[in-house]
């Protein structure tokens, strides 16, 4: 092996600092995707349950009839948005902090700091992958049930906008967990706790139409409550309320800022 002669003037070969190295970004994304495919356990477990539940629910005719006890909605209309949001919440609260805290523990992030690319590239690769998996889940939960006779979301635009804002808020929250907790096990524990809190406000156990007014008011200001209501409104043909979209955007912006402020490489 011959090591090529080094350039004598370092400045001559070095591009401007801060430019994104797309070749590295692509390589990182491919590499992380490959690792995800080799360790599919967490992600599969995360997505199989809600996707299967949505498909099964959609295939039962009785579930598709409006019910007076559910505020005039059908069981499917009520639960499809909850399940759609269940998947992104689980991915963001569990899978994302898990992989990032483990990379920090292993010194992978610190190791990347010693190269010309920033470890930020790795964070973006992970966010891209997790969001992609979540979007595929969402698509399966929206597209497959209508094949069995369940309704489509009547306002797809509102549905997608709400979903993306909700995903932003959830991934931001996941990043905050990864920033605050440096131990992978502690992060996983806190992520589980937060996941159940989110599901409570989303109405998994106590449906939003049946919540007392004061509790529903609180739920309106949580990312999961706002997102599920926005998705429900969209699926029955309305536009999501501005309040819910603003709540999601504020959560997204605030958690992103916090995560950027407190995330450390080691």
């Amino acid at each position: 092996m011959s090591i090529p002669t080094q350039p004598t003037d370092p400045a001559a070969t070095i591009p401007a600092v801060g430019r994104i190295n797309w070749r590295a970004a692509r390589a990182m994304l491919i590499s992380e995707g490959r690792l995800l495919a080799r360790n599919p356990g967490v992600v599969l477990w995360t997505v199989v349950l809600p996707v299967a539940a949505a498909i099964i629910l959609g295939s039962i005719p009785a579930v598709r009839r409006p019910s007076a006890g559910l505020g005039g909605l059908s069981f499917f209309q009520l639960y499809q948005p909850i399940l759609v949001f269940f998947a992104i919440t689980l991915l963001a609260m569990q899978a994302l902090p898990d992989v990032l805290t483990r990379y920090r523990e292993m010194g992978v992030l610190k190791r990347l700091r010693t190269t010309p690319v920033s470890p930020t590239l790795l964070l973006f690769a992970q966010l891209t992958l997790i969001l992609s998996v979540a979007i595929v889940c969402m698509a399966l939960m929206v597209v497959i049930p209508p094949l069995g006779g369940a309704p489509w979301p009547r306002n797809p635009g509102g549905f997608v906008i709400t979903y993306l804002l909700g995903a932003w808020a959830m991934l931001g929250l996941g990043m905050v967990i990864a920033s605050l907790f440096h131990n992978a096990k502690v992060a996983a524990g806190f992520g589980s706790f937060l996941f159940f809190v989110m599901q409570f406000f989303a109405g998994l156990w106590w449906q939003r139409p049946n919540m007392p007014v004061w509790l529903r008011d609180i739920s309106d200001y949580t990312p999961s409550g706002a997102a599920v209501q926005g998705l429900t409104d969209s699926s029955i043909g309305h536009w999501p309320r501005a309040l819910h979209l603003i709540v999601l955007a504020v959560w997204g912006a605030a958690t992103s800022r916090l995560a950027i402020r407190f995330f450390s490489w080691e």
């Binding site: 070969t13 591009p15 190791r111 010309p116």
Partner: peptide, 12 residues
């Protein structure tokens, strides 16, 4: 800067 990272390799 990135310029520095290109001339230095580190095994941690």
């Amino acid at each position: 800067g990135a310029a520095f990272r290109k001339v230095l390799g580190i095994q941690l």
